[in-house]
Simulated scan of single mutants.
Amino acid sequence: MVDLNRQAELREAIELFFFGYRAFTAPPDRLLEAWDLGRVHHRVLYFVARRPGITVTELQGVLGVSKQALNGPLRQVAEAGLVGSAADASDKRVRRLHLTDKGGQLEAALTGTQVEMLEKVFARLGADAELAWKQVMQALAAPPEA
């Protein structure tokens, strides 16, 4: 049960989260628009860049989406020449994903805007604020306690 005395503070936190996320995603959104892509495509590019050789099944797990939900965006980035795939060395049925040179450049530009934004904010607010922010994000991302 939510403490009724904390309603205003918690709603303020929700609003700040919304406005912060909007500011965080605006620069990449503008770049994606030129490619006729959206945030889901950015997430695909981001995690394929961080984990070269990731399988489609592994990517589904990281993103928390179904195979059907991933199929369209993955096909679009592949057709745009941003993501490629190769058969796994030990199991030819498994496809390993990687960014193409063009995909790597786009991902670097997209994520680069966000890295710069975080770098500036963390430098201004300090290491304690950065640590606290990471702890809040980790707690939000963790599965709810039973």
Rank of each mutant, 00 (worst) to 15 (best):
P73D: 08
R75E: 00
A86M: 10
G81N: 03
N71W: 13
D101M: 07
L99A: 10
G84F: 01
L70D: 08
Q76M: 12
G103V: 05
L97M: 04
H98T: 11
P73S: 08
A78E: 03
K92H: 14
L70I: 09
L99P: 09
G72T: 14
L74P: 06
V56W: 03
A49S: 12
V65Y: 14
F47Q: 11
I54W: 04
D101G: 04
R75D: 00
R93P: 06
L70S: 10
F47S: 08
V56M: 08
D101W: 06
K102P: 00
V48W: 03
Q60N: 11
D101F: 07
R96D: 09
L63E: 09
G61L: 11
K102E: 00
H98C: 09
G64M: 03
P73L: 10
Y46P: 04
L97Q: 09
I54K: 08
L74F: 06
A49T: 13
R93L: 07
N71G: 13
A78N: 02
P73V: 05
V83Q: 15
L63Q: 12
G61S: 10
K67R: 15
L63K: 15
V62R: 14
A49L: 01
I54E: 08
N71Y: 15
L59I: 04
R96M: 03
T55W: 07
R95P: 02
G72Y: 12
G84K: 07
A86S: 03
K67M: 04
S85M: 04
L97F: 09
D91L: 10
V62P: 01
L97V: 08
G81Y: 03
N71Q: 15
K67T: 11
K67W: 05
G81A: 03
V77G: 04
G53I: 01
R93E: 08
L106W: 00
G84M: 05
A78H: 02
G84D: 02
S66I: 04
G103Y: 07
V83N: 13
V62Y: 11
K92T: 13
H98F: 14
L82F: 06
A49M: 13
Q105Y: 02
E79C: 06
Y46K: 15
F47C: 08
G81K: 00
H42Q: 15
Q76I: 06
L106R: 01
D88A: 15
A69F: 05
R51W: 07
G81W: 09
A80R: 01
V62G: 02
A89W: 03
Q60I: 06
E79I: 00
G72R: 15
K92W: 05
V48E: 02
A89H: 11
G72E: 14
L74W: 07
Y46M: 14
E58V: 12
E58C: 12
Q68V: 12
G61H: 04
S85C: 10
R96P: 02
K102T: 01
A89S: 12
S90G: 06
Y46L: 15
G53N: 07
L70C: 11
T57F: 10
S85Y: 05
G64K: 10
H42G: 05
Q76D: 11
E107C: 09
V77F: 00
E107K: 13
G53E: 02
G72W: 11
G53A: 00
L74Y: 02
L63G: 14
S90W: 05
V56T: 14
Q105K: 15
Q68A: 13
